[in-house]
């Protein structure tokens, strides 16, 4: 960025012309983000509904199928995402304090933890492939409940796959935000933007909070 465009970017009014003041703009942005997240709740809700219906119909097969998943890796991934959410909320805090360097580092940490999550997820998916747990493409499970176990894995790949797409988008957005902030003189001007990105990130974390027990933790005992 040239010096002139740098100055232009800094001088650009913080309030868009269709808003009265910063506060109104912040409220409108927050409302818009929550409306989007509401549609996301219903979007993921459909997959949860399918899961609940089939789990209630094929309880035993779902418990059997769930045991193929790697609980330690799933637990580690849950912890990783919670760490990333902490980094994100701290990034929002330090943006508000106008502490640029700390905020940028925390955003990069958030993205890195998200990438680590996806890395572990990729290892799990590759293992699933080698164990013949991929419905339609490489399904090697046999037994009386094999068809219903296959159904569990269809839901597993759909739900974790949709979640992973959200993670990829989140990592890209958080990474770009870190680069944009690094070029700003006063990062506090970008507080609303970063807070909205944070809302999205925490939402994706919440989705995983429900996916983890539903997919990984069915009847570990016995």
């Amino acid at each position: 960025m040239s010096d002139v465009s740098q100055i232009a970017a800094e001088a650009r009014p913080i309030v868009a012309h269709h808003f009265d003041d910063v506060e109104q703009q912040h409220e409108a942005n927050t409302l818009g983000m929550w409306v989007f997240l509401t549609t996301e709740v219903l979007f993921f809700g459909g997959t949860f509904l399918g899961y609940l219906v089939f789990r209630s119909l094929y309880t035993h097969a779902f418990a059997e199928a769930s045991r193929h998943l790697n609980v330690p890796l799933g637990t580690a991934n849950t912890a990783l995402l919670l760490c990333s959410s902490l980094a994100m909320v701290l990034a929002v805090y330090f943006v508000r304090q106008d502490r640029k360097r700390t905020a940028v580092v925390l955003l990069l940490l958030t993205a890195a933890l998200g990438a680590a999550f996806l890395g572990i997820k990729a290892v799990e998916w590759i293992t699933d492939w080698h164990e013949g747990l991929v419905p339609g493409l490489n399904w090697l499970v046999v037994g009386p409940n094999a068809k219903h176990e296959e159904l569990f894995f269809v839901l597993y790949f759909t739900m974790t796959g949709l979640h992973a797409i959200h993670m990829i988008i989140g990592i890209a957005v958080v990474g770009i935000a870190a680069l944009v902030l690094a070029r700003q003189q006063h990062v506090a001007r970008r507080f609303t933007n970063i807070e909205m990105i944070g809302l999205y990130w925490h939402f994706v974390d919440i989705v995983w909070v429900f996916l983890f027990p539903l997919l990984y933790l069915i009847n570990l005992h016995g």
Binding site: L31, W34, L37, T38, L42, G45, F48, L49, S85, I206
Partner: peptide
């Protein structure tokens, strides 16, 4: 996460309505 990380208490009443509606529709569907 919603209360402490997403600061839902600091949002406006209108935003609250949307959050509540999202959860209500989800509840009805399930």
């Amino acid at each position: 996460i919603m209360v402490f990380f997403m600061h839902i208490r600091k949002t406006t009443k209108v935003a609250w309505i949307f959050v509540a509606l999202g959860l209500l529709w989800l509840f009805i569907m399930l």
